[in-house]
Write a protein that binds this DNA or RNA. Structure first.
Lengths: 119, 119
DNA sequence: GCAGTATGTGAACATATATTCATATAGATG
DNA sequence: CATCTATATGAATATATGTTCACATACTGC
C-alpha cells in the first residue's frame, strides 16, 4: 500500500513553488474585476466614445441607444475602476477617460484577436 | 414650437461621425468575450500557472483546488479563445499558454491597478 | 422655496455564468 | 474485449450581472 499523491506530473516541491508565486487572492480578485469592466459591450462602447470626446451622460445614452439610467449605472462601474473622470458644469456632468492604459489594453486585445482567424 | 434634439452638447454631425467610427457590433462582441475570459479568478489562476509551466488537467485541478470537471470547463473556454494549446500524451493532456499576449495583457492591467491607490 | 432639468440609485427582473454531479469519451493495458 | 485512467461534457443549480422602472438627489432660475 502506498500514499496517493496529489500531483501526477509534478513534485510536491514544484507544486508548492508554483503556488507560492501565485498572486494573493485579493490581487487576483482586483484583476478579474478590472477585466470584468471590459467584458460588456455597453461599457466598451461607452469607453470607445469617451476615448474620442468628453461627453455628458445624456449624450452618451443617446449615442449607445440606452436609457440614461443604464448609462449612469455603467458609469458608476467605470468610476469605481478609475477608468473615467468627470467634471460638473451646472446640472450636467461631463465624463472623459481617466487613463490611457485603456487605449493600450484595447490595442493589445485587438492585436490578439486579429491574429487568430475569427470564428 | 421647435424639434426636440437627440443630443444636447453635440451636433448631429458630430454624433454621426462618432457612431460611424465605432467598431461594428460583431467586433465589440468579440472584444467583450475576449476580456470576459480574464474576468474570472479561476481562469486567471489557471492562466497564471500555465504561464509558468505546461501542466496536465489533473495537476491544474489540484493546484487551483477545484474539481477536474470545473477545470475542464474553464479550459474549454480558454481553448475557444485560443489562449491555451494542448498536446495529448496517452490519456493525459498537457496544456500550455498559446499566446504571449496574455503576459502582455497582465502587465498592462497590473500597471493600471498599481497606479491607483487600491480601495 | 418651488419648478424644472440632469444625473444617480435601489429594487425587481431577466439573463448569463461558474460549479457540481453524473456520465460519456478516448486511450492504454491486460 | 473488459477494465482502468484521464479528460470532456450535459443537465441542474446557485450566484452574479445588466437593464428597466420609479424615485431620489443636486443644481439652476424664477
Amino acid at each position: 500500500m502506498h500514499a496517493t499523491y496529489l500531483y501526477k506530473g509534478l513534485s510536491q516541491d514544484e507544486a508548492e513553488t508554483l503556488q507560492a508565486a501565485l498572486p494573493d487572492e485579493r490581487t487576483i480578485g482586483i484583476l478579474s474585476d478590472f477585466f470584468g469592466v471590459f467584458a460588456d459591450s455597453t461599457r466598451l462602447r461607452i469607453l470607445w466614445f469617451l476615448s474620442h470626446k468628453e461627453l455628458r451622460v445624456a449624450d452618451l445614452a443617446a449615442l449607445v441607444g440606452m436609457q440614461q439610467s443604464a448609462v449612469s449605472h455603467q458609469l458608476k462601474t467605470l468610476r469605481l475602476q478609475r477608468l473615467v473622470k468627470f467634471r460638473r458644469e451646472g446640472t450636467t456632468i461631463h465624463y472623459s477617460l481617466d487613463d490611457d492604459h485603456v487605449r493600450h489594453i484595447f490595442d493589445v486585445a485587438l492585436a490578439h484577436i486579429r491574429e487568430g482567424q475569427l470564428p
